[in-house]
């Protein structure tokens, strides 16, 4: 019954049982947060740590995290590893194939700003939040499994604080055009990339 005490609920006792009354938010958010299925999607070094997190010692299943091989069945995309310009359109396509509500964890330094590949690299996309909105960044090169699990717990807390039926207040893309309020992938003088638009590599070449 300890669990019941933690629930923001009103329990009315009647003979042979009881009625539990609580908010819709609480029920739906907890259902969402405790069964996050992530996409089995490894790009580089971080994918090995992602595999280690899912394996024997760290046991990702404890958090309700189970991998699915197809984007159609997933709630969470863990971008594990360096994203190159050649791969970036595919990742955006995968993100768009996921059903709503969807969340993104950017794992490792490469996905935040290029990480060790920031300098001197001509082919790495410096930050995945230039193409898809990111909810949680997990730092490290690569992050330890504990760090990744901490990120997932942080994401679950984020989900639990959401209001059902209201548009999610999320950090969004890094570059927002103030005039049109649309996410910007490239500089305004070279063209806009709008959501739900598949980016071709030639458009990605003029990153700001």
């Amino acid at each position: 019954m300890d669990l019941i005490k933690k629930i923001p609920a009103y329990v009315e006792r009647i003979p042979n049982g009881g009625i539990l009354m609580t908010g819709l938010d609480w029920v739906l958010n907890n259902a969402k947060a405790s069964s996050m299925w992530y996409m089995l999607f490894g790009l580089a070094c971080c994918a090995i740590e992602l595999m280690a997190t899912g394996a024997s010692r760290y046991d990702f299943d404890r958090l309700g995290m189970i991998f699915r091989a197809t984007p159609r069945q997933t709630d969470l995309m863990i971008v594990a590893g360096t994203l190159t310009l050649k791969m970036a359109p595919r990742v955006k396509l995968l993100y768009e194939q996921m059903p709503d509500p969807k969340y993104v964890i950017a794992m490792g330094g490469c996905t935040m700003h290029g990480g060790p590949f920031y300098h001197d690299s001509y082919s790495v996309l410096k930050g995945v939040d230039k193409i898809i909105p990111v909810d949680i960044h997990v730092a490290g090169c690569p992050p330890r499994p504990e760090a990744l699990m901490n990120g997932c717990i942080a994401l679950q807390d984020l989900i639990r604080g959401e209001k059902v039926g209201r548009k999610r207040d999320r950090p969004g893309l890094r570059h927002i055009d103030p005039a049109t309020n649309l996410p910007l992938l490239v500089r305004p003088d070279t063209g806009l990339i709008r959501p739900n638009q598949i980016i071709m590599p030639d458009q990605l070449r003029v990153l700001s």
């Binding site: 920031y118 300098h119 001197d120 690299s121 001509y122 082919s123 790495v124 070449r205």
Partner: peptide, 10 residues
């Protein structure tokens, strides 16, 4: 001598 907007020289 290759130069590219994405290439930030260290």
């Amino acid at each position: 001598d290759y130069a590219h907007p994405n290439l930030v020289v260290r």
